[in-house]
Amino acid sequence: SSQSQGISSSSTSTMPNSSQSSHSSSGTLSSLETVSTQELYSIPEDQEPEDQEPEEPTPAPWARLWALQDGFANLECVNDNYWFGRDKSCEYCFDEPLLKRTDKYRTYSKKHFRIFREVGPKNSYIAYIEDHSGNGTFVNTELVGKGKRRPLNNNSEIALSLSRNKVFVFFDLTVDDQSVYPKALRDEYIMSKTLGSGACGEVKLAFERKTCKKVAIKIISKRKFAIGSAREADPALNVETEIEILKKLNHPCIIKIKNFFDAEDYYIVLELMEGGELFDKVVGNKRLKEATCKLYFYQMLLAVQYLHENGIIHRDLKPENVLLSSQEEDCLIKITDFGHSKILGETSLMRTLCGTPTYLAPEVLVSVGTAGYNRAVDCWSLGVILFICLSGYPPFSEHRTQVSLKDQITSGKYNFIPEVWAEVSEKALDLVKKLLVVDPKARFTTEEALRHPWLQDEDMKRKFQDLLSEENESTALPQVLAQPSTSRKRPREGEAEGAETTKRPAVCAAVL
């Protein structure tokens, strides 16, 4: 046999249950609850290399294929790409003598399909299967379609040439079993990697079954959420508030809700932002270029202005709740996480202390139980975000031990490091100062900020419009641009040419 590394010779191994799959997660993409704000000051410096380099560890398999027929071997997927077919160049070659004697062998292509993985959001991997055969590759009886790919989820059954000719079961060793999710959700989405997690739940990458488009699904544990919100009269209202707010909003710089499922837990389906959180971008770069800050901040102002015009105060604006559309420097941003939002009543007064301390406005800290506050709290938070983006460190921090965090904020005395700000323009610093004003009545509004000289930049605004146009074009394009080929190089076993392929839609398939 010419099988590559990772293939075992026996096809009769006992199949494990899916609970053996491991679970991976990374930083929070968007969480309903406010958790302790991640610290920006503690960015690790590059460490000196050791005298002796450690040995390379043996790579762990990321997936496993269990053979369902004699003549096929099990495969431990270690590499990122595997070709399957009769050709000797394939990493998994159909060359077992037992297999060659079967009637089905002649229906398999020289290069029938490939399984591979690509880097997705949060640097996690996504597994795909890609059909290159004349007679078809099927996943859970659905045709992939020649020249098309679809994501592979845990426990997928792979069939060759005929939908009933099941050859492998695919085990993704990095994700959960699909069966743990409600059927209504599974009918519409293929669940994938964990993108982030918080005290009350997690955010998962998923794929729409009909279109193969990526989405983010925010899962909120009702049990954990009820415990964490025990002081509230009705904890469920917080989730329902977020859903109702998101459904009503329609702005290019605000995250869109696509679906909602109320089962044992809450499942909020949101558009996916491939670039992750602004927080991670700031930490990764230490600070952002001023031109990049301007492009992002302009969009934040437009989003918050839209919220305020619609009578909504976000109340928890922070870099973790600003998501980026891509890994590119120039990209769209979207505001997310409306769990603490407040729809303005007639009095415009709110007395609930919520939000993240580092970003809270002075009037929030001094008015607990005594007075109210209004939309100006969001403008203060925007000032803190702009400060961080321009400088790479927070204006107020618990680690300045000589003054408490509350006193720093209520006095408006931010930590100004001259040598850092020497590289920032006077106009940018002036806008920061106009937003970090203790008196909410004297603080800049979103309208005033948008009129500030720093943002009178036609090149930046043109760039934003171009990015918007690109997004609109990409969302308007159909996901499947061509029909699967019906040509046949070899006959199917026991049926006429093209008899099955043309009847089945290529579900969740995307043209390369």
Rank of each mutant, 00 (worst) to 15 (best):
E473L: 04
T486D: 08
A449K: 03
H399L: 00
E274F: 13
V420L: 07
F297I: 15
A291S: 10
A376V: 12
K342I: 01
N250W: 04
E458W: 12
D262H: 13
E309A: 10
T352C: 03
E271M: 13
A476W: 15
Y306E: 03
V322Q: 00
R375D: 13
N415W: 06
E363F: 01
V424K: 09
T336A: 04
K258I: 12
A496Y: 07
P418S: 14
S341K: 06
K434E: 13
G345K: 11
Y393C: 05
L272Q: 12
C379S: 12
N415M: 08
V269L: 15
L431V: 08
L481H: 01
E244P: 15
V377K: 01
L270G: 02
Y267M: 11
V432F: 06
F444L: 11
K433S: 00
S404F: 09
K247S: 04
V437L: 10
F260T: 12
L332S: 15
Q483L: 09
F338R: 00
A303C: 14
R375C: 13
G392E: 03
G383T: 03
D407V: 12
I313N: 15
D457A: 14
S341Y: 02
Y373E: 02
F416H: 13
S367L: 09
L386A: 10
L512N: 14
K294H: 07
E244A: 15
N285L: 08
N259T: 06
P453L: 11
T502G: 15
H251R: 08
Y359E: 03
I335D: 00
V420M: 11
I335C: 12
N321E: 00
K406R: 12
E329Y: 12
L353D: 01
L295W: 12
K318F: 01
T502H: 11
N321P: 00
F338W: 01
Q299P: 05
R490G: 07
R351T: 03
S404G: 04
T358G: 05
Y298M: 02
E363R: 02
V282Q: 06
T370E: 11
Y266I: 11
L344M: 13
L344Q: 04
N259F: 13
L270N: 03
E271Q: 08
G276N: 14
C331M: 02
M350S: 10
A509M: 11
N310V: 04
L307K: 00
N415H: 07
V403S: 06
L270I: 07
E329C: 06
Y306K: 06
P252H: 09
P484R: 00
K489I: 01
M273P: 01
C253V: 04
K289H: 12
Q483W: 07
M300I: 15
P491Y: 00
S326F: 13
Q483N: 08
F387L: 01
A449V: 04
K413S: 00
V366M: 04
G275S: 09
E290Y: 09
V437F: 07
L246V: 03
E309I: 05
T446E: 00
H308C: 11
R490C: 00
E493I: 00
L307G: 05
D316C: 00
L302H: 08
E495H: 13
K294E: 09
Y266N: 14
N285M: 12
M300R: 03
K433H: 14
V511A: 12
R287H: 14
P357W: 06
D280G: 07
R315A: 14
P319G: 03
T356E: 00
Q299K: 05
Q402R: 09
L382Q: 01
T486S: 08
Y359M: 04
V368Y: 09
I257G: 05
N472W: 08
E277N: 06
K294N: 09
I245G: 15
H340M: 05
G276D: 05
S348W: 09
E274G: 10
S348L: 14
T358K: 15
P362T: 06
D265K: 13
